[in-house]
Simulated assay, not measured.
Amino acid sequence: MSTDPYRSLLTHLAHCNDSNDIDELLTALLTTKEQHEIANRICIFDLLERGITQRDISEQLGVGIATVSRGAKAMQIHDVSALLATHRQDN
Rank of each mutant, 00 (worst) to 15 (best):
A82D: 00
V63F: 06
I44E: 10
Y6W: 05
F45C: 10
A14Q: 12
G51P: 01
D90N: 10
D90V: 13
L25T: 02
S2W: 08
T86Q: 08
L10C: 09
R70D: 01
T31A: 05
T86R: 02
D23A: 14
E34T: 04
N17D: 09
D4W: 01
G51Y: 11
K73V: 14
K73Q: 13
R7H: 06
Y6K: 13
T53M: 06
E24W: 04
G51R: 08
V80P: 00
I77G: 02
I77A: 06
S2I: 14
A39D: 13
T53W: 06
M75I: 04
I38S: 07
Q54E: 15
C16G: 04
V68F: 05
N17Q: 14
D4V: 08
D79W: 09
L30R: 01
K73E: 13
S69V: 14
G64E: 08
H87C: 02
Y6L: 14
S8T: 11
K73N: 10
S8L: 13
Q54P: 03
M1A: 09
R55H: 14
N91C: 08
L83A: 12
L83Q: 10
G71V: 01
L83G: 01
R88S: 09
T27W: 02
I44C: 05
G51D: 03
Q35V: 12
A66V: 06
A14G: 11
I42S: 01
I57G: 00
M1I: 14
S69A: 15
I57D: 00
D23Y: 15
I22Q: 05
V68A: 00
P5R: 07
H78C: 10
D21Y: 05
A85W: 03
T11W: 13
L84K: 00
T32C: 11
D90A: 14
K33R: 08
R70V: 07
H15R: 12
L83K: 07
N40F: 06
A74E: 11
L47D: 02
K33W: 15
D56M: 13
A72K: 15
D79S: 09
M1W: 08
N40M: 09
T67I: 14
L84R: 04
L30M: 05
